[in-house]
Every structure is written in structure tokens, then in C-alpha cells.
Amino acid sequence: MTNSPEAKTPDSKPTTIDETLDHGTFGRLIEPRSENRLVLESGTWHQISPKYVWVQLISTGSFLLIVIAATLVLTLLMHQVWAWIPGGILTVILAWTLAIMPRQARAIGYQLRDDDLVFRRGILWQRFVAVPYGRMQLVDITHGPLDRGFGIAQLKFVTAAATTGVTIPGLEQATAETLRDHLIQVAESRRTGL
């Protein structure tokens, strides 16, 4: 667990909510190197907790171990040669997922602008979404057993459109609750129709 507070970029206008949101998160956003990447000129990105990487590594890693064990048992002990094919494919995919996971987690970010929330994720496939606060139908916080052990949670911002898909994983639980209360509060003052 690397919960060491990393160096923070000094905010021009530090407020209490910003401090809460940036407590114990990654300090630098990873972006594609190309000049052609998508960049927002203004605003500071809030990032997620490094604990998310650990949670993902443990869950994906244990799944990978199960797959490898099952493949080995099937092929070596039970002499089912076909099991090499699905086992091999799954192993490669999971190993690749594990390899890029730390970088992917550093590419997840969100901005709380005046009237909307901007969410970003992905390096190779970049995705930016802007959701006006008033469009919020509900905020969902979920944490599984592993998440709870590490003290993180996932926050989902639900609108009337299924395609919005703004799900911020790996927030510290206190951060998630602060963010939820903040979102509900600003959404209340900007309530719109559907």
C-alpha cells in the first residue's frame, strides 16, 4: 500500500472541498504524448486514489492465478489439450490488463466546473464527458469488500441518458461522500427538467 501523500500542484484558489478531494490521490495525470491529444485548456483535474491500483491488481491478479491454475489442472492432470486455447487467451488478456492498469488509473480524472462536471479516462482511447449538474438523477456510491478493506469507493453519476457513463472509481471513502454531498447540493440549486 503506497498511501504516501504525493506532491501536490499548488492550487491557485485552495478551498476546503478541493483539499478534501485531492487528499491522498495521484499527483500527475498521464496523457497521451501526441500533440493531437484531447486537452482542456482550463481547470484543475482531480485524480483518484493509488489504492485503486492495488485493489484492481489484487482482484485481477487473483483471477489470473485462478485461470492459470485451472488451465494447468485441466491440461496437465486431466489431459484436456483444448484448455490451452481459452486459458492462454484469457491469461494474455489479463496479464495485459494488469500491465496497463497503473497507467490507466493515472489517466482517470474529473473537474468540478461552475455548471458541470467533466470526467476523463483512457490514454490510448481518450474519453471526455461533460455533465451539467442539473442533469443529475442520482449519485450512486458502491464499494465491494476489497474496496472497503482499502477504504475506497466508486461513485456513479446517473443521468436520464444511459450513455453518459460517468463512473469515478477509486475515490477515498471520505472523498466520495464529500463529492456526493457537493454534487447533490449544486444539483439542487441547478435543478432542471429532464
Binding site: L38, Q126, R135, T159
Partner: peptide, 12 residues
């Protein structure tokens, strides 16, 4: 409801 941008490697 919201607005999104996507950019894949070919796009970039």
C-alpha cells in the same frame, strides 16, 4: 443529458 468526446489512436 451530457456531451462526450472520444479519441482513439487512429483519430489521434
Amino acid at each position: 443529458q451530457s456531451f462526450g468526446l472520444n479519441q482513439g489512436p487512429v483519430d489521434r
